[in-house]
Design a protein around this nucleic acid. Structure first.
Lengths: 202, 202
DNA sequence: CACTATCGATAGTGTTACTATCAGCAGGTG
DNA sequence: CACCTGCTGATAGTAACACTATCGATAGTG
């Protein structure tokens, strides 16, 4: 907690005397936000600081906050360098095919292209149908994200939800994908290890 | 490289003399796989080792490999402990509503429930529509995943693709989601910061 | 006027992912 | 056949990250 204060993730409270500092609800809320980003979103302290700085800025335009938040998040996960041009182009074409209006600075390009690169290096070339399905899913999710944002009850917290939603939504879809995968697997390959109790205990 | 050997991520090559070791294509492939998991997937060494051990096991059933891979991956991102029972129940209901046949051991439950928890702690209660959209998207993705798996040209590499696909697919959907978000934002809030060049340089 | 409690600041700790260094030895070179 | 190169496995060291513990100063409490 004092660590977060020091790191600049939480604004310092109001001094009450030279050794007392007052904290209010905004501090509690902020710490919760920080912990959500770090623990569930898996962000580093540095990335969290970046993200929060956009929240704290007076620029409240939705588009601008989105852009800043994505930049702060984008580079976080991967290492250094950029994705291959070929992969980037393929993602670009995919975006165009889905009618997405995007800017080249969007770190999503790099994140997606890196993933594509990684698929290639291990010898799997994703088909167009595969990528299309992913892109359709992304559209569905993004629409839900924006709907959640615009129907927010407390307008002053929209920026906060946007930032957190970007991070936590990744975790949410990852979890749900795991569940859906299990279901699809079960549907394609009806259980054949159910009756035999090969492993009785572990 | 020697580090990965030491860590047990790569099988040691055939000794040729007491100071020479021969490596072949399988080693190259393995290293590529390891780097894809670590760099793009963001896995830790320990998690990667877990994942690879399932690949190396002789159990080749699709369902079993999926389960093992998901377990190895599931706990990786988040910290310790479990999600709140309420959030877990909500995810459970969501899965039921979407007709998913799943097992409670699926770490996806915990991952999704944690994300839900995090949304709650920052004061945002996801609506049913929001979760439904995410679940639908998850279904779309999972179907594409399984299709890619079953139409694989080299059957002996299905397990590998499954494991890597679980990890890299997360990154792919995260990137595409960012792109789709930007597009949705642009559609909802047509540009109004284009003409004014408020910030000429930085 | 001792005691306690909190403050900001600094130093230390444990983990993770590498990187550098080291001795040992087979094979080629002069 | 001494010598050097280059590779081996093994160990020690490093750098970043996220905390955690401790410290002296100080201010309110009994």
């Amino acid at each position: 907690m004092k660590y977060y204060l020091r790191a600049g993730l939480v604004h310092s409270g109001e001094r009450v005397g030279s050794n007392q500092t007052a904290y209010d609800d905004s501090h509690v809320q902020r710490v919760r936000l920080v912990r959500a980003l770090i623990e569930t979103g898996g962000l580093s302290i540095a990335a969290t600081k970046q993200v929060l700085s956009t929240l704290d800025s007076d620029e409240t335009s939705l588009a601008h906050t989105f852009e800043a938040a994505q930049h702060a998040l984008g580079v976080g996960g991967a290492s250094s360098g950029s994705a291959e041009p070929g992969a980037l182009r393929r993602i670009s074409e995919l975006a165009t095919a889905h009618g997405w209006k995007t800017t080249v600075e969007n770190p999503g390009f790099d994140v997606a292209a890196r993933a594509l690169d990684a698929f290639s290096t291990i010898g799997f070339a994703p088909s167009d149908e595969f990528l299309d399905a992913y892109a359709s899913a992304a559209t569905t999710i993004a629409r839900a994200d924006l709907r959640a944002l615009t129907t927010r009850d407390r307008p002053e917290l929209v920026a906060e939800l946007m930032v957190v939603g970007t991070v936590l939504g990744d975790a949410l879809i990852a979890g749900l994908r795991r569940l859906a995968q299990e279901n699809e697997t079960a549907e394609l390959f009806p259980v054949h290890t159910t009756i035999h109790d090969e492993k009785d205990a572990k």
